[in-house]
Amino acid sequence: MARWEPGTAERLQQAALELFASRGYEQTTATEIAQSVGLTERTFFRHFADKREVLFHGQELLQGAFLTGMDSAPAGAGALDVVIVAMHSAATEFFPAERRPHSRARQTIIDRNPALRERERHKLATLGATVAAALRDRGIGELPAVLAAESGIMVFRLAFGLWIREGEQRSLADIQTAVFGELFTLTATAAGSAADDVQQREVQR
């Protein structure tokens, strides 16, 4: 009988990634994943509801990292400032450099399968809703809470895609900072253009 031991879930995850990459996601069974590391199918299902969830194990931990980061933001901080602090904390804790090859392999598998892509979108949507709820709990209004949360998830998704590119050396936290910089430049330019348009209309009246 296979022995229950620490790290079993991680062993199954790594085995699944290797099998999905070599055989294909659809062609790989939960039994084959378990057997490849000397475990039973029963042990596999103690850890994961199905083979799809191997790729999404740890979602709760990622949400927890975001929420812990939000708790560390100063009282009275603006909605987006809180999100930025949370994202920096999560990126530093949850996505160290040594995790990059694993994340790259995982994303490659997800990108090849429509059902997995939908599951990934659902994961990010759930994360965004969780962040928005936590912002509301801090006394931030509904609209700014949702805007800040959704903006953060967009930046996270774009930064993550850059972070897993071959040859990329920057940390996820640094890439997030760069992407936020681009966002702030765009919004500042748009705000300036909008103000100019309003002023021009007033002059023409």
Rank of each mutant, 00 (worst) to 15 (best):
T43H: 06
A178M: 03
A15M: 03
G161M: 02
E142N: 14
L158N: 08
S103Q: 15
Q200S: 15
D196K: 10
R138K: 12
R121K: 14
Q14F: 07
A16C: 04
V155I: 15
T189I: 05
F20P: 09
A15R: 01
V85E: 09
I84W: 06
I153V: 15
E32A: 12
S22P: 09
A79D: 11
G76T: 08
G64M: 08
V179H: 00
G58C: 03
M70E: 01
A190W: 02
G181I: 01
R138S: 12
A2F: 02
A191G: 04
I153A: 09
R23M: 05
Q200D: 15
A132D: 09
G181C: 05
E41L: 04
R121V: 08
S171W: 01
A9E: 11
G58Y: 04
L17I: 10
R119M: 13
F66N: 02
I164T: 12
R52G: 09
E26N: 00
A77P: 07
S22A: 10
P6M: 09
V131K: 03
V85T: 15
E10S: 13
E142I: 13
D50M: 06
L172R: 00
R157I: 00
A15I: 02
A134Q: 13
T189N: 06
A86H: 06
Q204K: 00
E93C: 08
L183G: 02
G161K: 07
A190M: 15
Q27G: 10
A86F: 05
A133K: 13
P101D: 10
F66L: 15
P101E: 06
G24T: 04
A30V: 07
I33N: 04
A2G: 08
A73W: 02
M1C: 12
T108N: 15
E182S: 06
R170W: 00
H47I: 02
L183I: 10
G38F: 01
T28G: 01
G181A: 00
T43A: 11
A2K: 10
R46P: 04
S151T: 13
Q199R: 11
I175Y: 01
R23Y: 02
A132Y: 01
A65I: 03
R157D: 15
V203R: 14
V83E: 03
L143R: 14
V82E: 07
M1R: 01
T108S: 14
A86Q: 06
V146H: 00
D81P: 11
D197I: 15
N113K: 04
G7M: 05
V131H: 11
A133G: 10
R46V: 08
T177P: 05
R52A: 11
L172E: 02
L39E: 12
H122L: 14
G38M: 06
A15S: 13
D50Q: 08
S171C: 01
E5L: 05
A91F: 00
A30R: 03
R11L: 14
D174H: 09
Q63S: 05
D81V: 14
R46K: 07
A129T: 09
L12P: 00
E202S: 10
R119F: 01
Q176K: 02
A190Q: 07
A30F: 05
F66M: 14
A34G: 03
R112E: 15
H122I: 10
R100C: 05
Q200T: 07
A90L: 07
R104C: 07
